[in-house]
Design a binder for these strands. Structure first.
Lengths: 178, 178
DNA sequence: TCATTTTATCTTGACTTCAAGATAAAATAA
DNA sequence: TTATTTTATCTTGAAGTCAAGATAAAATGA
């Protein structure tokens, strides 16, 4: 079947919260082109909805999302699971002050250690402790499974499509400077 | 052309930050099924990237994102641009305490007014002031244009696809309880 | 080598948000 | 009508973040 602009056989998708918002705007401000507001609205809302559902698993293991993010970044960097603070806060898109704060918490919990950096005395390296390593190893499979549960209703094709278009959007958003 | 599972002609998309994260995990933990982590990661990252770019316009008019959200919700509800606090914080997915805080700021700025609710003495209605109405009318077109600029690189087809799959995801996420 | 500029953090203070508790009005039940 | 339960906020105190300023080490330049 050839692609056509409008197709009377096209199934109308069940409206979501963003469709409702858009229809309100269309009634109030019909002159506005809302296609950007629509995607960005969905993006933001979907992100907000998944956030507490994802964090739920971390909380069961005494971690919050920010703490998990640090441990996970160290873990996936590979042995010796050790990075400089700048590498961490760049990856995690937070400020250096925020990172200082997180590191202090994680150190207090014994999940990371701070080591002198032989190559640069301005920074102290952050290393996953044995306890931190074990914890992330334990949490990870549960986190992964939880994610799979959250998207279970999406078939593989939708998922693939979603990934591809989100990747394009990410490129568009990362490109421009703030 | 028929759809096939794998297609050697398929163009490999340029990797993004999430592809990098996923490849690290694949190296470290090859046994994990990462397809959920991948979409949810993109979702979160895209949302985080768009956020300051969107807010930039609000800041130019002396508003932050939370304040804009309240004014916009009132505006698109239609005349008389007046809602109860519960309607606002439900829509905006924040707690009642957060809403109290936001309302106080907006009232201090003269952008909203609090009116007694004739139907329920427990609540004071929130109404867009003339000043608030004028401000949101001014900001809105700039916000809309800014959004269009942010997604300018995406062709209409990608956008449509993205919207459809995000809508499915939203349904999946709104469905389950926290 | 010595001064200057750039980096890599850490510190501080302000802000926003949330969870949980306090209040008061509305809805129900007895 | 009176007691009980449910609602709709508001209040309070604890977190987590950020921007901006303070420090100290590293990199550059003269």
């Amino acid at each position: 079947m050839k692609k056509t602009g409008k197709n009377k056989n096209m199934k109308t998708p069940t409206p979501d919260a963003v469709d409702h918002i858009i229809s309100q705007w269309r009634r109030e401000k019909p002159e506005l082109e809302l296609k950007a507001m629509e995607v960005l609205g969905r993006l933001k809302r979907a992100s907000a909805l998944q956030s507490p559902k994802v964090e739920k698993v971390f909380l069961e293991y005494g971690l919050n999302q920010p703490e998990f993010d640090v441990l996970a970044t160290l873990r996936r960097s590979g042995a010796p699971y050790c990075l400089a603070p700048t590498a961490l806060f760049s990856t995690l898109m937070v400020t250096s002050g925020t990172m200082t704060n997180r590191m202090m918490q994680l150190e207090k919990k014994g999940l990371i250690e701070r080591l002198p950096n032989p190559e640069d005395a301005r920074s102290k390296l952050v290393k996953l402790s044995d306890k931190g390593f074990e914890l992330i190893e334990t949490v990870l499979p549960h986190h992964v499974q939880n994610g799979l549960n959250l998207i279970a209703k999406l078939d593989d094709n939708t998922l693939k499509t979603l990934n591809q278009s989100l990747r394009l959007l990410l490129h568009a958003l990362e490109g421009d400077d703030l």
